[in-house]
């Protein structure tokens, strides 16, 4: 089977996504360090409320993590002052033609909700039919055949070969 999708096959979602503003790599590094630092700080404080044995190693490691966060933050600030070459590289790396991660994340979240509500088969069929279309593969008939075949193979192999019980979904579990 040949899927003819060119690099031009972008969805409307992606065109909107291209217009979002970009941050420099140093700023992003700083934001990431701040989030990791916050996590270490929470663990560090919480470990004081544990028994000596249970809290000792988490205290040491999260403390070390906090020190490393400070070093990394200083390094990120230095890089920001040093120039924009790195930023230019990143801009090149960030060139994309598909959909932004958060839009894909939204689709993934919808899949999980359907997975719980309608079960594996319905959720997967719907996901595999819609997502290729949103990602640029606009051939509906091919997408439906692809969805049915892939869902069938994955379901059959996991259920019959690996003995994994895939969920029927909250709505259908009462009927089977």
């Amino acid at each position: 089977m040949v899927f003819n999708i060119g690099r031009k096959g972008c969805s409307a979602l992606s065109i909107e996504a291209h217009q979002s503003p970009k941050m420099s790599s140093g700023t992003i590094d700083l934001i990431m360090v701040a989030i990791v630092c916050l996590f270490f700080a929470v663990i560090f404080v919480m470990s004081f409320f544990l028994s000596k044995t249970a809290g000792m190693v988490p205290k040491l490691i999260s403390g070390l993590g906090l020190i490393l966060c400070i070093i990394q933050a200083v390094q990120a600030l230095r890089n920001m002052k040093a120039g924009t070459r790195q930023g230019e590289d990143d801009e090149k790396d960030n060139a994309h033609e598909g959909v932004r991660w958060y839009l894909h994340l939204l689709l993934v979240a919808l899949y999980i909700v359907c997975f719980i509500m309608f079960g594996f088969i319905v959720a997967t069929l719907a996901y595999l039919t819609l997502v290729p279309n949103l990602l640029g593969h606009k051939k509906w008939v091919t997408n439906i055949i692809f969805a049915v075949v892939t869902t069938g193979i994955v379901y059959y192999s996991f259920v019959n070969w690996f003995y994994v019980r895939l969920p029927l979904g909250l709505l259908f579990s009462n009927f089977f």
Binding site: F3, I5, G9, G98, H104, V108, Y111, I112, F115, I116, F120, T124, Y127, L128, V131, P132, L135, G136, H137, F146, T150, V154, F158, F162, V164, R165, L166, P167
Partner: peptide, 26 residues
């Protein structure tokens, strides 16, 4: 050589099925 528009949904489905398979927990 498969287009990412086809590969991405397959990877996503396998990710979730594999993750679910180990403990049967959503």
């Amino acid at each position: 050589k498969l287009p990412n528009s086809i590969l991405v949904p397959i990877i996503t489905i396998l990710c979730f099925t594999g993750s679910f398979a180990l403990r049967n927990d959503v």
